[in-house]
């Protein structure tokens, strides 16, 4: 990074530290914070989508769909997320490759499972083994996202299902009286109104999601915990920057990061709740209505 860093063994004090903190592994450590934030940014809407589908399925009038929705939410809720993470990524990877194999290599006659091995045709490999490393990493990353989204989608489904039930029945009855079909009422009345009921639960879910990110390294993503463990461990003089076991400092840093992150989230979500409550037929909406000065509704 800096010019004087070319010979770390000759440095001491602040200069050594400045070089140490800007070496290659540290830059990757810092960028892994971005990885975690990116993952959260993609996972949250995806989990919400899974949750929406799960909740909609759970209240479906088609029995098999309803069972599927309920099984999904109940099962994921009953099992610790870490257990899913430990085998789901490989399972998901094999499932995708198996489907591609069926589609792309109809003439393949060797068995896919040979003992512990899982061999699909080279065309079905995801990504192809000749693909650049970046694709492999992107693929791993998306597997991690899908795994996270499936697990947290089940929780979201639980919250949204409750929120849909919480929308006053009179609203739906009025919609029916206006001649809306069940579908129309669902789309125009139920969905727009459920969010305010769902927000407390979803806010909570967001907090849980943040706090589940230290498990990302289990999914093969080189996240902040991976790097904190890797860099913090004691380094012999085989490394340019030897040091004793400093993991406690790195993990303390992560602790501070998470505390700040959850605090910011709390503040933002509280504001969002206030905004969504405006104009809603809830106690909070009523409070806001009374507190607001007379005049055109903003």
């Amino acid at each position: 990074m800096f010019e004087y860093c070319s010979d770390p063994s000759a440095l001491d004090g602040a200069r050594w530290l400045s070089c140490y903190l800007t070496n290659g592994v540290h830059l990757r450590f810092y960028s892994s914070f971005g990885t975690v934030l990116l993952l959260l940014a993609i996972t949250a809407p995806l989990a919400l989508a899974f949750g929406f589908l799960g909740a909609a399925a759970s209240r479906s009038s088609v029995a098999p769909l309803r069972w599927a929705g309920k099984t999904y939410t109940a099962m994921v809720r009953g099992v610790p997320d870490i257990v899913f993470f430990l085998f789901f990524v490989i399972a998901l990877d094999q499932a995708f490759e198996w489907m591609r194999h069926q589609a792309l290599c109809p003439g393949w006659d060797a068995p896919i499972r040979q003992g512990a091995e899982f061999n699909v045709c080279p065309e079905a490999k995801l990504p192809r083994s000749s693909a650049p490393q970046a694709w492999h990493e992107a693929y791993n990353f998306s597997l991690a996202i899908v795994t996270f989204a499936i697990v947290f989608g089940a929780f979201a489904a639980n919250v949204l299902y409750g929120a849909m039930r919480a929308v006053p029945r009179a609203q739906m009855e009025t919609a029916a009286a206006y001649g809306m079909t069940e579908r129309q009422a669902f789309r125009r009345i139920l969905v727009p109104q459920m969010w305010v009921y769902a927000l407390p639960g979803l806010s909570n879910l967001w907090m849980i999601l943040i706090k589940a990110t230290p498990l990302l390294f289990l999914l093969g993503v080189e996240d902040i915990v991976y790097w904190a463990r890797e860099i913090g461990g004691s380094k012999t003089s085989a490394f340019s920057y030897p040091h004793p076991d400093w993991r406690i400092w790195y993990f303390s840093g992560l602790l501070v990061f998470y505390l700040i992150f959850t605090k910011i989230s709390e503040i933002v979500l509280a504001q969002l709740t206030a905004r969504l409550s405006a104009g809603q037929a809830t106690a909070e909406g009523e409070r806001l209505r009374r507190a607001a000065p007379a005049g055109p509704a903003a």
């Binding site: 290659g24 592994v25 890797e230 461990g233 012999t236 085989a238 490394f239 340019s240 920057y241």
Partner: peptide
């Protein structure tokens, strides 16, 4: 594995 020096490890450049 990248965590078993000197057999294999991640060096200071992250490789």
């Amino acid at each position: 594995e990248g965590a078993y020096p000197p057999y294999n490890f991640i060096n200071d450049d992250g490789e």
